[in-house]
């Protein structure tokens, strides 16, 4: 038996919106301590990893580990039934064939229920090692979104360079070339802060198209954390207050 109730259902709705363009069918792993999922995009260059702790739920019960195979596209359609102020409850029996999703609005007394059919997914589960990233950049999520969006209109690829003084996003395309450079900024206004933790400089190139997809999660968190390490995938991380973390991994582009 699994049951989890989230008071702020909007968070779950935002999570589904933030991953639905990247992954299609996903195994959701239920454990007594929380909910997690890991899935790659169809081209296997990006990976989504979500971890939600049971502590963030108003009510959480999972007697055993369970795997719920879900079509994210269909889950997104079901989530459209939820009002932004709804509480969301997820329920599944042992050996379940469907996931019951309940939306409740205590103010308007409206309740919506949907039984989403589960699917069997044969997916690879990768072991992601604990990595000491040599450059970690914490940046306002709205600002990072805007930088990626605007640079994408100029180039398909962005080069991210870090050093102890700044992080630089540079592009080179038919239009020309240029860069956005952000220095370490620990101003009193928290939302303006850019925090650089660089032990070793990194220079890597990435497909901006993916970064734009990841940035859909910027509504989940005020800050985006970029973790870089030469020869390793970039991690774009969004902390979800009191609930968990949504991480995206993206393979760097390398010269052929």
């Amino acid at each position: 038996m699994f049951e989890a109730k989230l008071t702020e259902g909007l968070i779950l709705k935002k999570i589904v919106e933030s991953i639905k363009d990247i992954v299609t069918d996903v195994n959701i792993d239920i454990s007594p301590s929380g909910i997690s999922l890991q899935a790659m995009d169809s081209s296997h260059v990006a990976l989504v990893s979500l971890n939600l702790s049971m502590d963030g739920f108003e009510h959480y019960r999972a007697d055993t580990n369970m795997v719920l195979g879900v079509s994210i596209a269909n889950l997104a359609k079901v989530m459209k039934l939820a009002d932004n102020n709804d509480q969301i409850t997820l329920q599944a029996d042992q050996e379940a064939t469907h996931l019951k999703i309940i939306f409740e609005n205590p103010k308007t007394e409206r309740t919506t229920e949907f039984n989403l059919n589960l699917i069997t997914i044969d997916s690879e589960h990768l072991a992601i090692p604990e990595t000491e990233y040599s450059s970690v950049v914490t940046i306002n999520s709205g600002e990072f979104s805007k930088i990626c969006k605007e640079l994408f209109s100029l180039s398909e690829t962005v080069q991210i360079t870090t050093n102890t003084d700044y992080v630089q996003f540079s592009v080179e395309g038919e239009v020309g070339s240029g860069q956005v450079r952000l220095g370490h900024n620990d101003s009193e206004k928290k939302e303006d802060q850019t925090i650089l933790e660089v032990s070793e400089s990194v220079q890597q190139q990435f497909a901006i198209r993916y970064l734009n997809m990841f940035n859909k999660a910027s509504t989940l968190s005020s800050f985006t954390r970029l973790c870089l390490h030469q020869e390793q995938p970039l991690v774009v991380e969004f902390k979800i207050d009191n609930l968990g973390v949504l991480k995206y991994f993206l393979a760097p582009k390398i010269s052929d």
Binding site: E124, L126, F249, A251, K253, I254
Partner: peptide, 14 residues
């Protein structure tokens, strides 16, 4: 030209 390596190149299968 650029290429991107598969995620399974970086992270091993469990």
């Amino acid at each position: 030209k650029f290429k991107q390596k598969d995620m399974t190149y970086f992270f091993k299968n469990k």
